[in-house]
């Protein structure tokens, strides 16, 4: 079997179809991530234990029990905030809506982290200082 024989046995339509399929699927692989919602998840941890792992796309309000009392977390329009907290300083509420990064409520030991998917993690940074 040689290359010439191979070319002779395919029609022009075959070759066009192959070319179009490869082009479409490859550009699909490259661009679909841009088109799709970012696929971030909201991790809610209490005392180092994972309590909720929620998609950021779906609006909802959840309540978690921390060391002091209940913290209420709201997810809306791809953003997250803490609406109620039993802590004294209410710094977590003051932080307002976040789209990335984390909200930490130290007194109630609640951590809310917006984490990207594992493969996206490698493209960005592994840790932030400051």
């Amino acid at each position: 079997m040689n290359l010439k024989g191979l070319l002779n046995s395919t029609t022009i339509a075959d070759r066009i179809l192959l070319f179009v399929l490869i082009l479409l699927s490859l550009s699909g692989i490259i661009f679909i991530k841009e088109v799709l919602p970012k696929g971030h998840t909201v991790r809610i941890e209490v005392n180092g234990h994972l309590v909720y792992l929620l998609p950021i796309e779906k609006d909802r309000i959840v309540s978690v029990k921390g060391s002091v009392g209940n913290t209420i977390i709201e997810i809306k329009d791809h953003k997250v905030r803490i609406t109620e907290s039993p802590c004294d300083n209410k710094l977590c509420i003051l932080q307002g809506w976040i789209e990335k990064g984390s909200i930490v409520c130290l007194p109630n030991r609640v951590i809310v982290i917006i984490s990207s998917q594992e493969d996206e993690l490698n493209k960005r940074v592994d840790a932030i200082t400051g």
């Binding site: 789209e99 960005r124 592994d126 932030i128």
Partner: peptide, 12 residues
């Protein structure tokens, strides 16, 4: 490692 912008606007 990312170094935080000390005068970040809005985004932490």
């Amino acid at each position: 490692i990312g170094i935080r912008n000390p005068r970040a606007k809005g985004q932490k």
